[in-house]
Amino acid sequence: MRAEARSGTLLSAPYVLFLLAFAAYPVAFALALVLMHWDLVTTPSFAGLDNVKLLATDTRFWQAVGNTFVFLGLHLPLQIVTALALAVALNRPMMFRAFWRAAFFLPVVISGAVVAILWNALYATDVGLINALLVKAGIAPVPWLTDPRVAMAAIAVMVTWKNVGFYVIIYLAGLQYIPRSCQEAIELDGATAWQRFRHLTLPLLLPQTILVLTLSTINGFQLFIEPYVMTGGGPLRRTFSVVLYMYTNAFSYQKMGYAATIGVALAMIIGTVVAIQRKVVGTAEAL
């Protein structure tokens, strides 16, 4: 028994060390930094609640929070609808199905910075492919990344495209679990294709939808690379996300204590939003 306990400790040690070094320590460090002033160079000094007080009244921070919610408001519905639609489409028998599935998954494994640069080219106002197609269709070109009204929407579309393959896989797994006989039963019960989706497929995919919602919410709150590479937070700070603001404070202004405070606040916001989602969707599950 003691030998077993010893080998157990030994086997779990690498992971525990990894967790301590790369999860527990940074979290503890960030929590400590909330109470510090630190410019990365000199010795940190105790700041009391200065950082927290500043955060409460920092309009730029709250604007970034608002921007991030705008992003989520556009991104979450778009992400769920596209992932679900693609999964249902890719679940049907078709030619080269494996190819199509791989094709939609590919952007997931490409670096976010690379995708951002690629979409920068697509979105370019004068020479971008998207505007070229619009012009060809007789529609006026849209300044995708320079118009404050559309820039965040353009980023939301791009992020949705990049991540859709991952969520498609989650939905495809869920679709495998819908019993074939249930699909046949509802067909005999008189359902059209849309009614089959509405009354059987969609409700039975609720667990997957909850998972997709939670994961894309957490992921969406951490929006950073896309505005950093494509817009720098502009135009008119409309795409300035919370993480971008945190990054700017940390590495442009060298206010590590304040950046850590933003990080901790973001974690609390994410936790609250996901808890609210669980509460709402959880009641839907009981229906």
Binding site: S181, C182, A185, H199, L200
Partner: peptide, 10 residues
């Protein structure tokens, strides 16, 4: 039709 696994809507 009545199915072998009943095929009730869960």
């Amino acid at each position: 039709m009545v199915f072998q696994d009943y095929a009730l809507y869960p």
